[in-house]
Nucleic acid binder design. Structure first.
Lengths: 333, 333
DNA sequence: GATTTTTTTGCAACCGGTTGCAAAATTTTC
DNA sequence: GAAAATTTTGCAACCGGTTGCAAAAAAATC
């Protein structure tokens, strides 16, 4: 049913090679031929079959977009930006939802069957091993928001989460909080571990600051709220909390409000991510932002350059996170 | 580099057809042959190239997932559910982000180049004409959350938005609000138009209830807040507002709170969608929910049955919306 | 205008599979 | 155990393109 190369060739009275070449840039075709073919193609409404051509060129322009983060609102932004940036480069995102237990091997196969040119793994919770199985399968991979290492095995683009943890600690200390706590997301997430480490590294420099920590069960409003309720009920509250994520923070804030406590007077909260909601006037969360747009732009750029040179050695690109001052932390003295 | 059918055939010492057949269910292969081939395939780590086979079978198992709604948190849920449901059926979602001005023709071509087996258009704002261009191009299409018509040209799965509008009006009237208003999203969205129509249809039955309407510039917190601020500043407020969407409602709520008004005492708000956030204790929004999971399940089912029978005549599947009682409307008398 | 150089074009093989058909192998029937 | 019926297998063409190579056409050179 759909129009093929051959149909166009017939109508234009030329060989299929000629048609193929007019649709391949850089190929040798005379102006006259090009016009003839284009006319025929337009008449017929032909558009080349990308999949068929991939068979010989070895390029599908399909990029696997893999994530397990379909619950965090920040990822709506990630998907929006990532898909658009890929589209702008003529690449097509093939989505792979890792929610549920899909192991790395299966995931790799699911993408390999479709001969993706590469994969962008957008997740701050998947382990580096996951990305490695893609690389081992020969699939160029960029891990966005992932954990980096100093001798990277795959490209990693994101922020230095332990530096973010340090930044949070520094901020709280500067505001003269003397009893602080870490309220993290699930302990298994690499991002949580790293921020945890950074946070307490920094605090180690301030022996006068008391500290404690706990972990919520998920990166969600409910989990943040539940954990904060537990903390409140247990008594012995900290003066300020560094939460693993904005959604968690907002849950915590709601528990705090319910307990009749005032933010920032009675308790301070600092979040992470600076998602859209953090800016909402009725939330107004002080938080640490990561430059999502830059991270994704860089991820896509890196992917494109890997398509050109598959042997490019793995690179780590870190962007600075920054404090976004709003209303949930008391001012610096 | 990757293992091909031929490699497996060589290693197993059989023809390529034999290998192909062991990987095609329903094909005729003896047990002995199957074992031999499977052994060789396992040794080599072979997995068939879905794209190559699509060339002869005419099936890619690729489903275009097209949307322009990358800003509404409800769509994170939509993407999560939709991608998982597709994956469960062995289908792969190819994402097409319509944000920015991509016209229908281009969109169709972008998917046609990849020979998608079908397209799910998940949007409540795209016009029915958009879906039609897919159908006209011979691409099976399901429009989820779309506007339906009694003589549908494409499959539509969703809710009856004008009934939702009526439900909102009935609810407000029952609660003895006597001066109500519609605070819609962008007027161009079909869903807004339909809810608008239903809302005022119902109100027409109650001449004693005063009404008015206005439209926010987008389906966003900021737009809802700005519009409500405008309304407050203009004076002459309604007693209750039906907002086009939960995000809009939350924006409106924040403006109301800033103005020192109490909800639901001074003003009532009823939203639409029942997104996760509406349930949050610090928002606690009374709203109308649409059964997203059912809608998407039905969309995928419909898509699957269309792949089996492309000539299936277009169908409309509507699910009831329902009132979710929370704290932003006063109780029934 | 003939010769050489350069560009354009078509042929045919190939990419990684599938499938109709007929030959080969196996099973069933008598 | 031979003949007939059935199943399994391989051959070769095909899906919709691309591309190396050589022939044909056009352009440049003398």
């Amino acid at each position: 049913m759909p129009i093929t190369l051959k149909d166009v060739a017939n109508r234009a009275g030329v060989s299929t090679s000629a048609v193929s070449r007019t649709f391949t840039d850089g190929a040798s075709v005379s102006e006259k031929m090009r016009r003839k073919v284009e006319k025929a193609a337009a008449d017929l409404g032909y558009s080349p079959n990308a999949l068929a051509s991939s068979l010989t060129t070895g390029r599908t322009k399909l990029i696997g977009l893999v994530s397990n983060n379909f619950h965090n609102p920040i990822f709506l932004e990630v998907f929006d930006l990532l898909t658009r940036k890929l589209q702008d480069r003529g690449l097509r995102p093939l989505l792979l939802n890792l929610t549920g237990e899909i192991d790395a091997r299966t995931a790799v196969r699911m993408l390999q069957q479709y001969s993706v040119d590469g994969a962008i793994i957008a997740s701050s919770t998947l382990s580096p091993e996951f990305s490695k199985s893609f690389r081992d399968a020969g699939v160029p991979v960029v891990n966005s928001f992932g954990r980096f290492s100093t001798s990277p095995e795959v490209h990693v683009v994101g922020v230095d989460n332990s530096e973010c943890g340090r930044m949070a600690a520094r901020t709280l200390v500067e505001r003269s909080y003397r009893k602080v706590a870490f309220l993290g997301g699930p302990e298994a997430a690499t991002s949580t571990q790293d921020r945890f480490r950074g946070f307490f590294q920094e605090l180690a420099k301030h022996p006068d600051v008391a500290h404690s920590h706990s972990f919520a069960e998920a990166y969600s409003f409910d989990a943040g709220r539940a954990e904060m309720q537990r903390l409140i009920a247990a008594g012995n509250m900290a003066e300020a909390y560094f939460c693993g994520d904005d959604v968690l923070s907002i849950g915590a804030l709601s528990a705090v409000a319910d307990a009749g406590l005032n933010v920032p007077r009675d308790v301070g909260i600092i979040g992470f991510n600076d998602m859209k909601m953090a800016r909402w006037e009725n939330i107004n969360l002080t938080t640490i932002s990561q430059p999502i747009d830059q991270i994704l732009q860089s991820s896509v750029d890196l992917m494109v350059s890997m398509l050109e040179d598959p042997d490019r050695s793995p690179e780590v690109r870190l962007f600075p996170c920054k404090l976004v001052e709003r209303g949930t932390l008391r001012a610096a003295p």
